[in-house]
């Protein structure tokens, strides 16, 4: 099906061990993460603990530490790590020819859930 993936921008705009945001009209903002070894993940930009913007946390390994209270979230599953509990939705994402592509269905599902 054409248009299964939405081009949201160049991978080069996300620093290694960093994140950038993609606002969704009518839905929740999505954070696109890039790890030190160049894997890319997309999560709703909201910590399950106190709704902190995960995109602003420190990325290490394949996890991010929430900037508000340091809860660690697995980028792959969206689950809180260690003794904490909670989960944030993930959105399928891939990189093609240097562009970041978000799953249209995933992003829409996120928007509808909001």
């Amino acid at each position: 099906m054409i248009g299964d993936w939405i081009d949201v921008g160049p991978l080069a705009a996300i620093p290694l061990r960093g994140a950038r945001t993609v606002p969704v009209a009518g839905g929740e903002e999505i954070a696109i993460f890039r790890t030190g070894d160049d894997a890319v993940y997309a999560l709703v930009n909201r910590c399950p603990h106190k709704q902190g913007p995960l995109s602003q946390g420190i990325v290490h390994g394949h996890a991010v530490a929430c900037p508000l209270h340091n809860m660690r979230i697995s980028l792959a599953s969206g689950e809180a790590m260690g003794d904490d509990e909670g989960c944030v939705p993930t959105i399928p994402v891939r990189v093609d020819a240097g562009r970041v592509l978000l799953s249209r269905m995933g992003a829409i599902a996120t928007a509808l859930a909001a």
Partner: peptide, 14 residues
Amino acid sequence: RGQHQHLGEFRPFQ
């Protein structure tokens, strides 16, 4: 500048 900008935008119901 990137620190203060969104990567892109998505308008599913445009």
